Simulated assay, not measured.
Amino acid sequence: MGRSADFDAFYDATSRRVLHQLYALTGDLDRARRCTQEAYARAWRQWSAVSVATSPEAWVRTTAWRLASGRRITVRRTARHTTRAADGGSADLVAALRTLPERQRYVIVARLLAGSAVADIAAETGTSVATVENRLAKARATLARILPDDTAVLTGGHRV
């Protein structure tokens, strides 16, 4: 497969998932789209290096998150933002995720939505496994208090 075909296959397989993860992280669909698109553009420009990374998808997700974190765009809390969610529980989940500190929000989305291993998240964030586990525990405890009992968290109907 050529460079372009390789990247196209990667993009087709991962872009929707990364967009959903970034939306969960930011709570702003337009911002998530812009940052995800820019992250994939950067991945394309550096594809020879990104394609051989341990997880090219994690590289794109981390790049998109860094872009989103660097762009302090004011998010208006309007019904328009909460009704954009794909299903009924998504708006509640995104709102709950927005209450978490950024570092906790990143690890909980990477772990539960992206399915990343704790060790991989530690490598992505430049922290220890113990730090990631601590952030996950705190995020889970906060989300368990905020979300209604019938709200399934992230994927597979698992509670946090």
Rank of each mutant, 00 (worst) to 15 (best):
T131Y: 02
A114D: 14
T62A: 14
Q37R: 11
D6F: 00
E133G: 08
V132R: 01
A152F: 05
A53F: 09
A49N: 04
K138Q: 14
A122S: 06
R71I: 11
V60M: 01
A114W: 12
Q21C: 15
I146T: 07
G156E: 08
V118T: 15
R80I: 09
L154W: 13
G2Y: 07
L29R: 15
T54F: 10
V75G: 08
I108N: 04
V94D: 11
T36H: 02
V60W: 00
A117R: 15
M1R: 06
R98K: 09
R61C: 11
A68R: 02
L19N: 03
D28I: 03
D149N: 10
A85F: 06
A58N: 11
A32D: 05
V52P: 02
R84N: 14
R140K: 15
T26V: 10
E102M: 08
D87V: 04
D120G: 07
R111C: 08
R34T: 11
E38P: 00
L93C: 11
M1K: 03
R105H: 14
H20C: 09
R72I: 06
T62W: 14
T74G: 10
V75P: 06
R80T: 10
R145V: 01
L113D: 09
Q21R: 14
R103Q: 08
S15Y: 11
A110S: 06
L97M: 09
P148K: 09
S55N: 02
W59P: 00
G70T: 04
R61F: 14
D149A: 15
V118G: 07
V160T: 01
R84E: 15
W44A: 00
Q37H: 10
D149W: 12
L143W: 01
Y23A: 05
A24Y: 03
A139E: 03
P101E: 13
A110N: 01
A13F: 07
P101L: 08
S48V: 11
P56L: 03
G89L: 12
Y23P: 04
P56N: 06
R31K: 10
A43I: 03
A152Q: 03
T131N: 05
A49G: 04
L22S: 03
A49S: 08
D87A: 05
D150N: 12
E102A: 12
V50W: 00
D30H: 12
W47F: 00
A85S: 14
T63F: 05
